[in-house]
């Protein structure tokens, strides 16, 4: 029997919430400290960190909730949590 992987998509397509608007602190990566271990990608609950084939990791801000797990887990402390909208 032929396999089908078709998901019936609802009338409104995907349910996508603007979770970026929750963010108070923004993770900023210091590329010079990064050793490309990929721990941030492994532990990001939102999947906001993407890795390219040559093991470069980038933080995307479209859905990042700003939880700070990546900054806490980075073994080289290459990620800093900076306040959104600059320092007060």
């Amino acid at each position: 029997m032929e396999r089908q992987h078709v998901t019936p998509i609802g009338n409104d397509g995907m349910y996508v919430l603007d979770t970026a608007s929750w963010r108070i602190l923004r993770p900023v990566m210091d590329k010079s400290k990064c050793v490309e271990c990929g721990m941030c990608l492994a532990y990001c609950p939102v999947g906001a960190i993407i890795g390219s084939a040559d093991k470069k990791y980038t933080i995307t801000y479209d859905y990042c909730k700003g939880c700070g797990v990546c900054a806490a887990e980075c073994p080289r402390k290459a990620i800093d949590m900076k306040p959104e909208g600059g320092e007060k």
Binding site: L17, D18, P45, V69
Partner: peptide, 14 residues
């Protein structure tokens, strides 16, 4: 879905 309403730092979402 890229944006789901689990809390910040949710273990279940991970």
């Amino acid at each position: 879905t890229p944006g789901m309403s689990a809390c910040q730092g949710c273990g279940g979402e991970l």
